[in-house]
Design a protein around this nucleic acid. Structure first.
Lengths: 156, 156
DNA sequence: CTCGGTGCAAAGCTTTTGCATCCGC
DNA sequence: GCGGATGCAAAAGCTTTGCACCGAG
């Protein structure tokens, strides 16, 4: 589809600009990882991304995946979350409206939400305490009611 | 001091009630860990708590510390944070007003703040998405300005 | 007396690091 | 060709687990 193609070009452009600005090399691995991430629609962990690429017979190492994820987080193409199970989850972030997460403590389902008032809090707190706030993490923990919470962990 | 003594009795009472309710044993180790935690005023990591107790010649194992921390988190006497460095930080939570955290991405300084508007957001989001929200985690990441940010990691 | 809890050490998992090789610039 | 980047595997760091012993109920 045309839109997907445009998005793909756009994120490559952003990553390229970032790499050039930082005098980092534009290696094929870095762009392959970026592309793999943007072909996904979930909150994924490093191992899952690594396995996906291995399954496609792409030759990458975990070290490169970790390294590239750091770069992508730094240029805001990917966001990183610590949802509390000691394991980091990532998701693509370009073209998505800012959102936060709600996690079911029974089944680990992740739901996204957005509340503009948070931005006000962020601005005020930063000004009050002399911080230049660059980003935030807001997670609500609870139990999903009504909907079919299975109490069985899902692969999020 | 009298207040400290009352607090100490109060948290023991809460923990005791929790253990009895869950039919768990009231072992001396569990209360020793609780007491050690409430004698601290910082955000601490497991290893630090373990070492503190070892230094006082108290015989505990890491396994018991981890086990007890889980219990204390579950009965709301302790709160657990994932500040993003892959390592969990804990703090006592009874008798403290609810607060959130601001972290300097250069020196890792942790500052606490409180904004009552967050409660409104929490209530609204929970109602809207059919979640019974039990707790949350809000972290602002940024750089401290004006004050002397050393860019050197502190032991938080 | 029972069996849950503990200490200790080994194992598990995610992430980082060291090093030889490779390739972008 | 140089030096950054990669792949691989080993190592590191936090947390969990297995097992024999202990002690709370």
């Amino acid at each position: 589809m045309q839109i997907g193609q445009n998005l793909n070009e756009e994120i490559r452009r952003i990553f390229t600009a970032y790499l050039e600005n930082k005098s980092l090399r534009k290696t094929p691995e870095r762009f392959a990882i970026l592309e793999e991430i943007y072909s996904r629609n979930d909150h994924f962990e490093v191992e899952s991304l690594y396995v996906s690429m291995k399954n496609k017979n792409y030759r990458v190492s975990r070290a490169t995946v970790y390294n590239t994820l750091d770069l992508l987080v730094e240029c805001n193409l990917v966001s990183k979350h610590q949802f509390g199970k000691g394991i980091s989850l990532y998701e693509k972030s370009y073209g998505y409206k800012q959102h936060d997460h709600l996690i079911c403590t029974d089944c680990y389902k992740v739901v996204e939400f957005c509340d503009p008032r948070l931005q006000n809090i962020q601005n005020m707190v930063g000004q009050l305490l002399n911080f230049e706030i660059s980003h935030h993490s807001l997670i609500f923990y609870g139990k999903c009611t009504k909907e079919g919470c299975t109490e069985r962990p899902q692969n999020v």
